[in-house]
Computed example of a mutant assay.
Amino acid sequence: MKSNPFSPPEAAVSEAEPGKRRSIILSFASGLLVTAAVYASCFLGGTIFMLSIANSLSVSDAEKELASLSWVLGFWFTGGSIVSGFLGGYVCARMSRRSEMELGFSLAASVAVLGAGLGLADLSANSGVPSITFVVVALLLGALVGAKQNRES
């Protein structure tokens, strides 16, 4: 007991952890970076595939061959966007360890706006809207899986 009866009582106040806010920003940026890197790798792989086919043929034969393989490239790019979205959401959720779904929603919205703004998908009903929808759903599923694994560990 203190000698001064009028002094206020001591309280155990812990300082706020300064790394928490950085962790959220870092996890969001990492999720965005993973999404962009995986999609860019898939895009580069598809481009190299197309160029390797077109390089060995004449121009007219290359056009015919690439037109016949357009469905393969469509599956390749759609699959790449789904995988990149899932991995980006998963990385974002696992790194944040709190508010995983809120970060997943914000990451999905950011990727959708960036994808539409950069013209990666023309916003026609045939290709753009389903492509962005697949990425958003994959991002949210990745964030959900990451959040469940955070709760288990």
Rank of each mutant, 00 (worst) to 15 (best):
K2N: 10
K2C: 08
N4A: 13
P5C: 13
S7C: 09
S7R: 13
P8V: 14
A12G: 06
V13R: 08
E15S: 13
A16F: 13
E17M: 05
P18N: 12
R21I: 13
S23L: 11
I24P: 01
I24R: 14
F28W: 11
G31M: 09
T35W: 08
T35C: 13
A36Q: 06
A37R: 05
V38N: 07
V38Q: 04
Y39V: 05
A40G: 12
S41I: 11
S41D: 03
C42D: 04
G45E: 05
I48V: 15
F49I: 03
L51I: 07
L57M: 14
V59D: 14
V59N: 14
V59M: 13
V59E: 14
S60T: 15
D61E: 15
D61S: 14
A62F: 11
A67V: 09
S68D: 07
S70R: 09
W71G: 08
V72R: 09
L73W: 07
G74Q: 07
W76D: 01
F77Y: 13
F77L: 05
F77E: 03
T78H: 08
T78W: 08
G80V: 01
G80R: 06
V83E: 00
G88I: 08
G89K: 00
G89I: 00
Y90N: 00
V91I: 15
M95H: 09
M95R: 08
M95Y: 10
S96Y: 07
S96R: 12
R97D: 00
E100L: 01
E102K: 12
A108Q: 03
A108V: 08
A108I: 02
A112F: 14
L114G: 07
G117P: 02
A121Y: 15
A121L: 06
L123N: 03
L123D: 02
S124W: 03
A125M: 11
N126K: 13
N126G: 10
G128V: 08
V129H: 10
P130M: 03
S131V: 01
T133L: 14
V135S: 11
V135H: 07
A138Y: 02
A138M: 06
G142V: 06
A143E: 03
L144E: 01
V145T: 12
G146P: 01
G146Y: 02
A147K: 13
R151P: 01
R151Q: 15
S153C: 06
S153Q: 12
